[in-house]
């Protein structure tokens, strides 16, 4: 593990990715102590102020401090999408390894169902489920987790098929090992890298999806400080007060880029090629 960390940091892009990701996570954790103002406190005397010493990133239409809101803005998004990413990796990874190892008709049949899910316009589907189940994390986390899990399942299943075809798996089968030991001892250890990288990648995509939901009014609800929601509220003033849109966008994209770079570096350090998501 320490070895992996060293290899990741030894690449500039890996170090940058790890730095950005850690920075955002720490900011989100300690936002209440760092933020100079209450992120929901309105101030009628300080509406749409340009960035200054008092308000580093200016203020928004309701006179709230943008810096404090940006600091808090990632908390909900990171918490929700990280939980969803864990769920997606666990279920998608498990099902993928299972179908890839079992193969045959079970696999063939399940993959047609997966195909059906992958062909659905997921954003519309999310909106449908959220409008039925309500916009809370309780609905969003399992929904995101399920949909992204399907994509992980597909990738992991492909990789598992390759591992299952190798001689050491044949040797285990010839020895008479049952299915679960084969999956747990022979196949899974050869796929843990792919799971880690896939999970990180999907996490960054989920951040974007959650922010889109907030932007559309289905994610975070006002007055919660949230990057997507902030952009939605301030977008009308893009030409006169761009800071209200720019800073949440900057925060969101730097986090997504950071996670992407980190996932890439982990993949390279583990000898995976993400283009194919197969060990080389």
């Amino acid at each position: 593990m320490m070895n992996l960390l060293q290899t990741v940091i030894s690449r500039p892009s890996g170090a940058l990715g790890l730095g950005l990701t850690l920075f955002h996570v720490l900011m989100a954790l300690f936002a209440p102590w760092i933020a100079p103002y209450d992120p929901t406190m309105q101030n009628a005397d300080a509406i749409l102020l340009a960035p200054s010493f008092e308000h580093w990133m200016g203020t928004d239409t309701l006179g709230r401090d943008v810096f404090s809101r940006v600091l808090h803005g990632g908390r909900l998004a990171i918490a929700v999408t990280f939980s969803a990413a864990v769920i997606a990796t666990l279920w998608g990874g498990f099902a993928g390894i299972f179908f890839g190892t079992v193969g045959g008709r079970v696999d063939e049949f399940s993959m047609r169902i997966v195909d059906a899910f992958l062909s659905m316009p997921w954003l519309l589907f999310l909106l449908l489920i959220i409008s039925i189940g309500g916009a809370g994390p309780v609905t969003i986390i399992p929904t995101l987790g399920f949909f992204y899990g399907v994509a992980i399942l597909r990738v992991v299943r492909g990789a598992a098929m390759q591992v299952a075809a190798r001689d050491f798996v044949t040797a285990a089968k010839a020895r008479g090992e049952r299915l679960w030991p084969v999956i747990a001892r022979e196949v899974f250890p050869n796929l843990s890298d792919i799971l880690l990288v896939e999970g990180a990648m999907r996490w960054s995509w989920m951040l974007l999806a959650f922010s889109s939901l907030s932007f559309l009014g289905f994610g975070a609800t006002p007055p919660t400080p949230d990057w997507g929601l902030m952009v939605a509220q301030e977008r009308g003033l893009l030409s006169t007060a761009p800071w209200g849109v720019f800073w949440p966008c900057f925060a969101l994209s730097s986090l997504i880029i950071g996670i992407n770079l980190l996932a890439d570096a982990i993949g390279k350090a583990l000898g995976l090629d993400r283009a194919t998501a197969i060990a080389v």
Binding site: R166, D167, F168, T170, A171, A174, R185, E186, P189
Partner: peptide
């Protein structure tokens, strides 16, 4: 019991 042609592939890395 069986011994495989390619020892490299028959041992789990």
């Amino acid at each position: 019991q069986m011994i495989f042609q390619n020892a490299d592939a028959s041992l789990n890395p």
